[in-house]
Design a protein around this nucleic acid. Structure first.
Lengths: 317, 317
DNA sequence: CACCAAGACCGAAACGTTTCGGAAAGGTGA
DNA sequence: TCACCTTTCCGAAACGTTTCGGTCTTGGTG
């Protein structure tokens, strides 16, 4: 494997000049640059990533840490993001490192090992909890990262997210403008910030309209739970239901054929909204629209910026 | 980010001894070793991978290239392997690089770019086709790799696989020993070596027993296709069916409630065999038993060996 | 003609680790 | 006493790159 030294000998220059030529520095004559590049090509020079990383601190690799299989993890979402992100990073010539945690592993410890080990320029964080410890750790160590979502309302770090407060507001408003006053919410997991933010938007919209939230049932977003939730709703006088995603909505609709349904659609599952009968309003923000912005944001974060991207959502019905 | 030098200063030793202590070399007293390890822990030392790589020539990273989402890809399987392998490599302190191909990308080109760029010690290859071009490329460049499966009968490279010929033989034999003579095969994708190998085993077993294969329907292994295949079987006198996996078997059983079924179970889907009524025999080889052996095999391959692992399967019923 | 800036180049140090070739201290046998 | 181990330690070099600070030309300027 030829090194800079070999190239230098081959073109009759110093290692310094060869390095500077290949990196397109200013104080190398144009003629020398082409000569060096030509020579490097001739002997098949490939820069040694480890040496470059050791010296410069930049490796061209980014990483993501994901939990292993477990009850509480939505594997579909995980895989969708891994595939989407990896593809986008590959397209940009960056290397994508995937670290899957074992059953008892601490995400923060894994993060710190990877950070100090070097060779990783930045991290993609997904699925935050409130005041996420990973955010704290990376912020403390000054490591670039981008978060898919937000772990608090006043985030000061790079993130890509939708406006979940606005989503909640929109969902609640579509129900109240159609006359609903006693509304049930069957939302997502309790400890997720987006559940909280949507709830805030819902509360605001309901207060404005003089409507009431008569039930709030957070939990996992499966069709089965949608059906179960429908059964445990107070039987009297609910005139609108807000669902966290389409799977929940499908379950709810099966049990409550005629009730007005407002639902957020992340398009995670290939689920045709037309399959749902009855009155339906939905906000739509495809999750897979986030991968490219996330990559761009991470690149910017590595360059020292603090990109904060709010992706749009659409309303239907 | 403390370095070896910091640890050395902290415990009052030389960098050399600290390095040797942490790497468990012989000429360090046991007492010193514990003292050093303690000190390293105290100041939060983490080895710098880039430096280690530069010195040793080993990066501690392995890579896997997977196709992106498409019709022909079994996402469940892909996801299962990515998660399983990544977790196993993480456990061994190796870094797992995932490269997801874009729609039109050539796997071999991606492979060669990664190999040429350096910084990757070895590759995991999965889902081979016959005479897989990736195998040819890596063999030609002398890059270590391990294949999950085999791309030909006389493989001379590192692999982890089951004996699919024996699987086919076992499946066919269980049917013939129960008197079946006119047997249909609803197998896996036509271009997959394991489909071919199983077919060979089936043919051998049937020849010995004087039985006949009256239908051979290769194709994707879904429940829907199982049902469809049942309809297109010759209507007269089939007394046994061999299915490529449990999903196919489920589809077949729905259409043919009483026929003896022999099926290979890779446990890819959490599918309880008890759910299938009627006469059922199966060979069982859980796919997720392969991840750890694959990792071990790749490590050995990187060390210059040629591990060839045949994982066992069980027969039930 | 002295001076200086600009252009092109180079030596050497540094990044953090591993490892080679010793060296000091203490024990052993003669 | 001496030579000769063993045990435990250490200095320094090396891996391949980037970059700081310099040197040597050249040509223009007053």
């Amino acid at each position: 494997m030829p090194t800079l030294k070999d190239v230098a000998r081959h073109v009759g220059l110093s290692v310094t000049q060869v390095s500077r030529a290949l990196n397109d520095h200013a104080d190398v004559s144009a003629e020398t640059k082409t000569r060096v590049r030509q020579g490097a090509l001739e002997i098949g020079y490939r820069p040694n990533l480890a040496a470059r990383t050791l010296k410069s601190g930049r490796s061209g690799s980014v990483a993501m840490i994901v939990p292993g299989r477990s009850e509480t993890v939505e594997v579909e979402l995980l895989m969708e993001s891994v595939m989407g992100l990896s593809a986008e990073f590959s397209r940009r010539g960056l290397r994508f490192l995937l670290h899957v945690l074992g059953p008892g592993d601490d995400p923060v410890a894994a993060l710190e090992t990877l950070v100090h080990g070097g060779g990783i320029d930045g991290f993609v964080l997904t699925d935050p909890v409130l005041n996420d410890p990973r955010v704290a750790s990376l912020t403390a160590s000054g490591t670039p990262f981008v978060l898919h979502g937000r772990d608090r309302a006043d985030a000061a770090y790079p993130f890509v997210d939708i406006d979940n407060r606005a989503v909640g507001h929109a969902l609640a408003s579509t129900l109240t403008t159609r006359g609903a006053r006693r509304i049930a919410l069957v939302g997502g997991p309790e400890d997720r910030p987006y559940t909280l933010f949507r709830r805030e938007g819902i509360d605001a919209a309901l207060a404005t309209a003089g409507a009431r939230l008569v039930a709030d049932l957070p939990g996992p977003m499966t069709e089965a739970r949608g059906r179960a939730a429908a059964d445990s709703l107070p039987p009297d006088g609910i005139d609108g239901v807000i669902a966290g995603n389409m799977m929940l909505a499908a379950g709810l609709r099966a049990a409550l054929p005629d009730i007005p349904l407002a639902v957020h659609d992340d398009r995670l599952f290939a689920f045709d909204p037309a399959r749902l009968s009855g009155p339906l309003m939905r906000t739509e923000a495809p999750l897979d629209a986030a991968w490219a912005p996330l990559c761009d944001a991470l690149v910017q974060a590595i360059d020292g910026e603090i990109p904060q991207v709010i992706l749009p959502f659409q309303t239907h019905g």
